[in-house]
Simulated assay, not measured.
Amino acid sequence: MMKRYAKRKSHKVQIFFSLLVFILLCIIAGKLILNSDFTAFSLNSMTRHAATEDYGWNLILVNRDNYIPDDYEMTLTELSNGKKVDSRIYPELQEMFDDARAQGYGLFVREGYRTQEEQQQLLEEKMEAYRNEGKPKSEAKKLAEQWVAVPGTSEHQLGIAVDINADTTKSSSDSVYGWLAQNAHKYGFIKRYPSDKTDITGVINEPWHYRYVGKKVALEIYSMGICLEEYIDLLEEK
C-alpha cells in the first residue's frame, strides 16, 4: 500500500514540475513576443515581399513592405560631381537641371545611387547618433528608420531616386524645393515623400527626395495630389 502511494505521489510531483516548466516557458515566450525588436522582425517577415516591375521599371514600388529583388539590375551613369543614377533617367534629369539653372536656380544632386553597404552604414550611423543622445537601443533603431530606410528598401538603391539640394551660394533651399515641387513632374519626377502622406509612405517629409516615374505618370500623381503607393493601388483596382 505504501509503495502504491509513493508511486502516485511521485507521479503527481512529476506532473507538477512539468506544468511549472511549461508555465515558465510560456512566460519567456510572451516576453520575447512583447520585445519590440522581435515583434518588428516577425511582422516584417510576414508582410514584406519582393517588389515587382509588373507596371514597368519606372513604377517599381520599394518601401518598408517591398524590398528590392536580389536580381534587380541597372546601368549607371556618372554625373559631373561623381554621383551616379540609372542611365534611363539621366536625360530627363539633365533636362530638369538645365531648365532650373536657366531660370536662375542653383542646385545639385546631393545623393543618387547607393549600394547596400552604403545604406547599411547610413542606418548604423543614425542609430549611433541616437544612442549617443541616450536613447535605448530599440528606440534608437525606430527613430533612425524614420530617417534612413532599412537596407534593401531604399529607392536610392534603385538608382532612379535623387536627393536634390540647393547651391546656397546661388539659391536658398526653400526656393529650390519650391521650384521642384511645382515643376519636377514636367520631367517625370515626383516628390516621393510629401508631408501629408507620411502615414502611407512611412517616411517623414523629404522636400529634397525626387523619384522618377515618367512624365505621364508624374503628371497624374501631381494632378491628383497622391503618392506612389496610392497610384499603385489605383492601378491594381483596374
Rank of each mutant, 00 (worst) to 15 (best):
N132R: 10
E118M: 14
G202F: 08
N183W: 05
V203E: 10
L122A: 11
K197I: 08
G106I: 05
E145Y: 10
H185A: 04
E145W: 05
L158I: 12
G112F: 00
L180E: 00
V203Y: 14
N132F: 11
I160Y: 07
P136K: 05
V148Q: 10
I160A: 09
D199S: 15
G134Q: 07
Q119I: 10
H185V: 01
L158S: 01
L180D: 00
E155P: 08
L123H: 05
L158W: 06
S172M: 03
G106E: 05
E133H: 07
P194Q: 02
T168Q: 15
M127Y: 07
F108C: 03
K137Y: 12
N183G: 02
D163Q: 04
Y177G: 08
S175E: 14
Q146H: 12
G178A: 12
L143Q: 09
N205H: 12
E118I: 03
Q116L: 14
E125N: 15
I164M: 03
K137D: 09
Q120Y: 11
R110S: 14
E118V: 11
Q182L: 14
E118P: 04
W147D: 13
N205E: 11
G112R: 00
D174A: 11
T198S: 11
A140E: 05
E111N: 11
W179C: 01
T168H: 10
I160N: 12
S172Y: 07
E117A: 13
S154V: 02
E111F: 10
H156V: 03
E128Q: 15
H185P: 03
Q116F: 15
Y130I: 06
V148R: 04
G188K: 02
I164T: 00
G202V: 07
T201M: 09
Y130A: 06
T115E: 11
W147P: 00
E128A: 13
S172I: 06
S154D: 01
K137N: 07
D163W: 07
Q119H: 08
Y113A: 00
Y130Q: 11
A144M: 05
K170I: 15
G159L: 09
G112V: 00
K142F: 12
W179F: 13
G188W: 03
G106T: 03
